[in-house]
Amino acid sequence: MWSNLLNKILTQLLLVSFLILSTEIEAADNTYYLVIENHVFKPSVIEIPPNKKVKLVIHNKDKLPEEFDSFDLNREKVIFAGKKSTIYIGPLPAGEYYFIGEYHPVSAQGKVLIKELKNAD
């Protein structure tokens, strides 16, 4: 009887911990990270869910400033050498939204892929 009760309590505790953890993961999921290194965006493709506003933290590891520029996303931000900058994008419908590093457009290219994510919600 005691072992059954202990099992139930442990299961409930696990369930509650899982729920708390999943909420934290979801909040963390709203932040995406982009690194500029050797005038290249890493990763070059970011997948985000549709119709959601997300935070994009861009870290420029190069020794020169770079400008994150996207006509599709209507965003434009200079990120100084060695600095991090944050921009918010969305909510946007599903689709592909291209961005470039305006000061090195040949190498610094990427896209935001907005689509239903398998593990979202």
């Binding site: 506003k53 944050t86 918010y88 946007l92």
Partner: peptide, 15 residues
């Protein structure tokens, strides 16, 4: 509006 939305001071709806 786009400048304010970029830094999350103002929220824009979907296009």
């Amino acid at each position: 509006l786009a400048l304010l939305a970029q830094v999350d001071i103002f929220s824009l709806s979907a296009p």
